[in-house]
Simulated scan of single mutants.
Amino acid sequence: MKKFALIGAAGYIAPRHMRAIKDTGNLLVSAYDINDSVGIIDSISPDSEFFTEFERFQEHAFRLKRESAMSLDYVAVCSPNYLHHSHIVAGLRLGCDVICEKPLVPSTEVLDELALVELETGRRVYNILQLRHHQAILDLKEKVEREGGGEKYDVELTYITSRGKWYMESWKGDPRKSFGVATNIGVHFYDMLHFIFGKLQRNDVHFVSEYKAAGYLEYEKARVRWFLSIDAGDLPESVKGKKPTYRSITANGQEIEFSEGFTDLHTKSYQEILAGRGYGIEDARHCVETVEHIRQAAISIPSDGEAHPFVLAMSSQ
């Protein structure tokens, strides 16, 4: 049984990590968050210590480290994006391997810094790249590899996840902390595209605002028009009033159905990490490079056939 600590216990994604720790037969020993709305711990690991001050959390971890039978094995990081680097480094220097949510860090420069701390501590960083474990994505990857070369796939990615007014008041609405909508809600999709279609060859940005972003990506095996949004107004008429989220990926006009099957992906990720098959720094590099470029790129005018239909609709209004 491995012993875990969790940083960011009050966040949206933290319960999936808590459940993955329990479902893999391990123990949540301690948790930290500046907010104390963490009652879900009672149903998963009621004996876990909990702290609202990082210094007390860290000191508790160091005390455990002195007792080899009680020392932590892993630190899971679910804190706001801009704190990932600091919390990962803290976990590594505690002598633990670290499992971190996406995006791992905002830039390749910070990624390289993490690699240095890995070398200094002898510990490892793992990124949750959960879509690599989704069966529909694995099936598509197998199909692409089986069909080999030839024409590139024509892919369209649309992801609209409605967010209320609270979103812009939270850290997620602050681009200094979330790194913008494309990074915050899109990074795992960019990883998925790389996982399936190979190296990125072009990365054009057609539209960016606080609420949405769109562009064109060209991979070794695909041309991708993408659109991401947190604006409920972008939901298709067939979805409005029924569901808050619309997720669609088509390849050569054929819908890739992956609306289901998300529930257990964190547990699967933990199983792979614990078995020594987790995704580390170099696995995350490609999607970190992608979002870093999107944040820095100048807006370009789409070439023929490269604009997402939602961008065309906006430009015609």
Rank of each mutant, 00 (worst) to 15 (best):
V239F: 13
R247K: 11
K242N: 03
L235C: 08
K243D: 15
R225C: 08
K221A: 13
I273D: 02
G276T: 11
G233D: 14
G261T: 09
W226F: 15
A232I: 03
F258G: 04
G253E: 07
G261E: 10
K268G: 01
K268D: 10
E220V: 11
S269R: 00
G261S: 11
Q254S: 09
G276V: 10
E272T: 01
Y219S: 02
R277Q: 15
N252M: 05
L274P: 00
A222E: 06
P244C: 01
K243I: 00
I230P: 01
L265V: 11
S238N: 05
I249T: 08
F227H: 03
L235Q: 05
F262P: 00
G253M: 07
F227Q: 04
G233K: 14
L265T: 10
I273P: 07
L274Q: 07
L228T: 09
V224L: 10
A251L: 12
Q271D: 02
K240H: 12
G253Y: 07
K240G: 05
G276A: 12
L265R: 08
R277D: 12
E237S: 14
L265P: 09
R277N: 15
S248W: 01
E220M: 07
K240F: 11
E257V: 05
F262D: 01
A222W: 06
K268C: 01
V224E: 07
S238R: 13
H266R: 02
A275P: 00
E237P: 01
L274C: 10
V239Q: 13
D234E: 12
K221P: 00
T263S: 13
S229K: 01
A232K: 15
T245D: 11
K268A: 12
L217F: 11
G241N: 09
I249D: 02
E257I: 02
Y246G: 04
E218Q: 15
E218R: 15
E218Y: 12
H266E: 02
E257D: 14
T250Y: 04
I273H: 01
S238G: 00
D234M: 06
L274F: 15
D264K: 11
Y270C: 03
E218W: 13
L217P: 00
F227T: 04
F262N: 07
E237Y: 00
E255Q: 09
T263M: 06
L265A: 08
P244Q: 01
E260F: 04
G276Q: 13
Y246C: 05
L217I: 00
I256F: 10
I256H: 12
T263G: 10
I256L: 15
Y270L: 12
L217Y: 03
N252V: 07
G233H: 13
S269G: 01
W226I: 09
I249S: 02
S259E: 15
W226P: 00
I230H: 02
E260Q: 10
T245S: 11
P244E: 05
K268I: 13
K268R: 14
E218S: 14
E272K: 09
A222K: 10
S238V: 07
T263K: 14
G233T: 13
D231V: 05
G241T: 08
Y219N: 01
F227Y: 15
K242E: 08
L228P: 08
Q271V: 06
T250L: 02
F227A: 02
K240N: 06
E237T: 13
F227R: 05
